[in-house]
Each structure stands twice: as C-alpha cells, then as structure tokens.
Design a protein around this nucleic acid. Structure first.
Lengths: 214, 214
DNA sequence: CGAAATACATACCAACCGGTTTGTATCCTG
DNA sequence: CAGGATACAAACCGGTTGGTATGTATTTCG
C-alpha cells in the first residue's frame, strides 16, 4: 500500500524493472548492442533512475548477471525434476525439463549469462566473472545427483563435476545453434544427444520418444 | 610488385586487413562492441577505405562471416584428420584435432561465427544467416564420414546430420564455458565428453589419454 | 514534526558513433 | 599516353552514447 502513489509505473521498483529489461534486451541484442536509453525506455524509467541504482553501465551488467543467477536458482529449485527417488532419474528428468522449456521465441529461452560471457570476454571482466558464477554455480547443483547415480552403479569414468559442466556445454551450444539456425528445435536436438550420452554412460535402454518432435 | 609504393602498410590489401581485424576484434569484444574506428585503427587503414570496400558496418559483418567460412573451410580441408582409412577413425581424429588446436589465448581459438550468431540474433539477420551458413556448412563436412561409420557398423540411432550438428554444439558450448571460466581447458573437456559419447555410440573402448591434461 | 536519506525526473554535455563528402594517387585499358 | 575506374586518405556531420548536474517528491527516522 501507499507504494504506487500517483504516476504508478508498471510493476516493481525501478531497479528490478531495469534488471528485467536488461534480461530481455541483452538476450535479444547483446550487452554492447543495448544502450542505457534502450533500457530506460523499456523499463519505463528515467535516466536519473538508472544512474541512481547503477554507478555505470558495467555495474548494470554485473547486477543483471547476479539477478539472473538468483532468479534461475529459485526457478530450478522449484522445478519438478527433483521429485524422482533415484538420482539417475533426477538427472534424466533435469534434461527432460530443460528440453521442455525450450519453446517459443528464441530470446525467451536462451541463457543471459552465456550471451554475456561470450560477448564481454575482454571488455568486461567483472561481467564475465559474474556470468561464470551463475553458469558454474548452476552446474554444481547437478553434481550431487550425478555423483550419487554414478556411485550407485559403480561408474567411475568421467568426474561428476566435469559431467555436470558438460550439461551446460550442451545447453549453451544448443542455444548458439538455435540462434544461428533460427530454429528452437536445434537446441532440443542438442539435449537429445546429451540424453543419449547419459543413457549410454549408464547402460540404459535408449528411448525413442523424441523422434517425432523434430 | 609495385604494390607497396611509399607508405606501404603491413600486408595484404585494405579489405582483407579489415576482415582480419574484424575476425580478431569481434572475437574479443563482439560485433556491437567493435566500432568502425577500432577496425580501421587495428587494420591500419582510413575510414574512407572502410566505406570503399563495405557499404555499411553490417556488410562488414556479413563479409567477415563469409571470410571466416572460406578460411576455416580451407584450414580444415588441409588438416590431417582426413588421413585414416576407417571413417570412424577420421571422425575421432577430427575431435582430437579440434582439441589439439584449443590452446593459447581464448579469443584465438574461439569461433567467430558462433560469437556473431549469439550476439546479432535480432539486430542483424543477414549476419546471422551468414554465420549459420558457416556453422552448418562445416557440420555438413562431417556428415559423410559419420554416415559411413554408422553404416559400416549397422548403427541407425541418431541421424548422421544431427550428430554432425552436435559436434558443433559441443564446440560452441565449450567455447562459451571457456570464455566464462577464462580457462581453455574447459573447451577441451567438452570435446573429451564428445569423444566419449562417440566411443559409447560405437562400442569402442574408452581411452584415458586425456586424463592428465586437465 | 523536522531533517536527512532515498528514489526518482529533467536537462544537459562532451565524446564517440556510423556514415558522407571531397580530394588524390595509382592502376587498367584502349 | 589519355582517361576513366579503382583504391584509398582526410575532414567533416548529425545523431547517439555513456555519464553528470541539478531539482524534487517521498520515505525513514530521531
């Protein structure tokens, strides 16, 4: 209450509105391709509001990466793939879940921090580090299930941490091909290969469920 | 001869010097993060030269993607991984070769057109299409060997074209993680998993050769 | 309640951006 | 060797960029 006084904007305070705008615009046009004016226009705030919350554009980039890490962490923590009792089933359910959310316009499901890391490797080390924290932090959430699944079946071969990172490789690489080919199915296809890789590693029968979806 | 008259530049004509500069600068800072002045300075040419050879910045982006496709096509055509008689050995040799050239500074081995496609998805459809041609064209060069290897061993499961694209997924995804983590070994690690995936698909014994390199 | 801190909005600025104009040296061709 | 085409160089231009200065409602708090 008392929050939206007179010229109530749309929702949330200027800071989160700017971070949401950054998430959307950067995934479409990249970091350098998104101007501060673009962000303010999209968020419906003034430039003064921008520089009240962020010291400079780079700080917005870092904050956007952190914001991405926070929101995705909450999103995946609440996702249904944690339900199965068998850790291997949870791992496979993760892949299926990631696959299921690849739909609609490409910028809508692509990874913000992957785009950021790719673009600002030299120009913005601070953004890159924040992006790395998000990517590798998320990969780490898979590690326990992978390790448990491997231990249960006495599979020693790839290190669980390395395999967990490879999940992100398949995702990020799938996003790149989806963008290039302008076709979301290319990202799903990548996850199908990841799924097959895991099933081969664990000597599971290969499902053919996805064959028709391509 | 008579070419480098008085103020001889460095090497090549202005056009290829600009394309080389674009290859280097865009892989470091992205397309939008690279200004035309940056390109001219790096190439050692004037702005007049730039707009003599390219109608606008977007045309430079498209030409850079084409130039990348041409040079990489020649580079991989001359690479040693085509030597083995068995197509499956050629496929594995491709992975090993790609792995072997991942060394030194990260912008030096990363894929230009992957960076481009990721960044200009919305802002530059022409660049994106040129990047797609390069990525999927290169993937297609693997298709014959993959198909032959699968046919020889009566493996029907993934479509050869899809598997060929997945090679690019592992590469592009590995580049993203390498950039984020600022560590080339992350890209090599991705190719180790791809190698394992192929060996599992073809029921080959898993080598442990790479274990020490991480 | 009063004052300081917070959260914006508006106007403005110098640098830089993509792009144009104009001029000139070299090359190619007849 | 004439003369147009090619391949640059340099100066310039309007709009945009990241960033600042300043002003003002609102909230917080002693």
């Amino acid at each position: 209450m008392s929050r939206p006084t007179i010229h109530a904007p749309e929702r949330g305070d200027a800071r989160t509105r700017l971070l949401d705008a950054a998430r959307d615009l950067i995934r479409e046009r990249g970091y350098a391709g998104t101007s501060i004016d673009d962000l303010c226009r999209s968020a419906g705030v003034s430039k003064g509001a921008f520089f009240h919350h962020f010291a400079h554009k780079l700080a917005l980039g870092v904050a956007a990466a952190w914001h991405w890490a926070e929101t995705t962490t909450a999103f995946f923590a609440a996702a249904p793939y944690h339900a199965p009792a068998d850790p291997l089933d949870r791992v496979l359910a993760y892949i299926a879940f990631r696959r299921s959310i690849i739909a609609g316009p490409i910028p809508g499901f692509v990874c913000l921090v992957g785009t950021l890391a790719s673009e600002v490797y030299v120009t913005g080390p601070a953004i890159r580090d924040a992006a790395a924290l998000s990517i590798f932090g998320h990969a780490a959430t898979l590690e326990a299930d992978i390790a448990a699944a491997m231990a249960e079946r006495s599979i020693a071969s790839p290190e669980p941490a390395s395999l967990a990172r490879y999940f992100q490789v398949a995702l990020q690489g799938g996003f790149i091909l989806a963008k290039a080919g302008n076709e979301a199915a290319l990202a799903r296809e990548a996850l199908d290969h990841l799924d097959r890789y895991i099933r081969l590693l664990f000597n599971l029968p290969l499902e053919t469920r996805h064959a028709a979806t391509h």
